Simulated scan of single mutants.
Amino acid sequence: MPHPRHPPDTGVHEKVTSTTMFKSIVVFEVEGGSDKYLDGHRRDTMPIINSLTEHGWHAEVVYYRPEWTEDIFDYVTGAFDGYISRVNPGNIPGGERGYFDLLTRLSDAGLVGMSTPEEMMAYGAKDALVKLSSTDLVPTDTHAYYDVETFHATFPTSLSYGERVLKQNRGSTGSGIWRVQLRDKQLAAAIEPGTALPLDTEIKCTEAVDNHTEIRQLGEFMDFCDQYIVGDNGMLVDMRFMPRIVEGEIRILLVGPHPVFVVHKKPAEGEDNFSATLFSGAHYTYDRPEEWQDLIDMFAAARPVIAEKLGGDNIPLIWTADFMLDTAPDGSDTYVLGEINCSCVGFTSELDMGIQQLVAREAIQRIEAAHAG
């Protein structure tokens, strides 16, 4: 079984060229983090490694550290055809910029990136919803805050239209995703939409990570949320709360262009519960794509529009699209896109479905296609 490698700190290795074929894939991880198991890896990392090995390819893990950047670059370009990134952005030492710069350099050197920083930022950034707000996939009143001043000037008015959900760009498993509503239901019913709420207005804030609820003042809560906006790739997406989220979130998991399964994630029962994460007690049901054929067909039809709005159709290796139920004007069910994830989608609970084998085949096919071209 291949073992994780720390890159050697001696020697300069031959750089990969368009005619070099190593039949070798490196899987990037970082040390530590809550997504690691007893062996120091994500639970789905070694199954990917083993599946690649079963296909006759060499595969190994290399840990990323900022101080190892040049040694990693030399080692990887001299021995591998492509990389698979299995790094949770929230766990990257030194922040995303250095790691993304390394991945970009590796792609420029000829490696096939899965997924590249460009794909992660185009598909996985939360403001993808804003770029799609002119389509039928996302409510038109979805917008993003890229600076603290705009957030503080706009959100008190945004909240006057009804319950909102704020989503940070960083984090995972519901961290920094907040359902925000007025504590006083009579005030919520009487407030004139478009009115800027006073900063001392009491609000109920429920975080998706575990459905815990806090009573805070609006101004103080916005000060707290400033942390999500400052720094590299910081932003907050402001989206209408979809009441039918209590019926469950519907996630399509894809490997490349292929829908693998649909997860129906029903939040735990409770007055303000809306989170669909396992950590929050949500119940998951796994279905075949054909059991949600209308949703699959709708998403497939929207793919060209998604590619146009997000800047290209370079599909991530492993990605998900999350939808919520809504009601159309004629009373029929429809679906609203809640987010797309592709930076480091986990599939630990689905290893018995053989997803790791699909990932290995798709990765190999991408590299072989790049060399054939």
Rank of each mutant, 00 (worst) to 15 (best):
S349C: 12
E339P: 04
V345H: 01
S343C: 07
V336P: 00
G338W: 05
S332H: 10
C342T: 13
L337P: 02
S332N: 09
A328P: 05
C344Q: 11
I340R: 00
D322L: 07
L325P: 03
N341M: 07
D333Y: 04
N341K: 01
G338P: 06
L325F: 05
D352F: 13
M324R: 00
T327Y: 13
L358K: 09
C344G: 10
F347C: 05
P329D: 14
C342W: 08
M353H: 11
A328S: 10
I340D: 00
I355M: 10
Y335R: 00
T327W: 11
E350N: 12
M353Y: 08
T348C: 12
A328L: 15
D330C: 04
Q356R: 10
E339D: 10
S343K: 05
G346H: 12
E339A: 02
Q357S: 14
V336T: 09
L351Y: 04
G354M: 13
S332Y: 03
F323G: 00
G331A: 07
C342P: 08
G338K: 07
Y335W: 14
V345S: 04
D352V: 13
M353Q: 05
P329L: 08
L325I: 11
I340K: 00
C342F: 14
P329W: 09
E339I: 05
S349H: 14
D352R: 12
M353R: 14
A328Y: 05
A328Q: 15
F323Q: 00
I355G: 03
D333C: 04
T327Q: 15
I355V: 15
D326C: 02
Y335K: 00
V345L: 10
F347H: 04
M353I: 07
S343I: 08
T334M: 07
L351H: 02
Q356E: 15
D330F: 01
D326V: 04
D322P: 07
C342N: 13
L358Q: 09
I355P: 02
M324W: 00
C344S: 15
L337Y: 06
E339Q: 08
S343L: 06
S343Y: 03
Y335L: 02
G346F: 14
M353W: 09
V345T: 08
G338E: 11
L358M: 14
E350R: 09
S332L: 05
V336Q: 10
A328F: 09
Q356F: 13
E339C: 07
I340C: 00
E350F: 11
T348W: 09
T327V: 15
L351C: 03
S343G: 05
T334P: 02
D333P: 00
D322C: 07
S343W: 06
E350L: 11
S349Q: 15
N341V: 01
E350K: 11
N341I: 01
N341L: 02
M324E: 01
C342D: 12
F323T: 00
E350H: 10
P329Y: 09
L358A: 08
D333R: 03
G346I: 12
A328V: 10
L337W: 05
S343R: 09
Y335E: 04
Q356A: 15
Q356S: 15
P329Q: 10
C342M: 11
T334Y: 02
L325Q: 13
Q357G: 09
I355T: 07
G331P: 06
D330I: 01
D333F: 01
S343V: 06
A328C: 11
L325T: 06
F347W: 06
Q357Y: 10
Q357P: 01
D330K: 01
L351D: 08
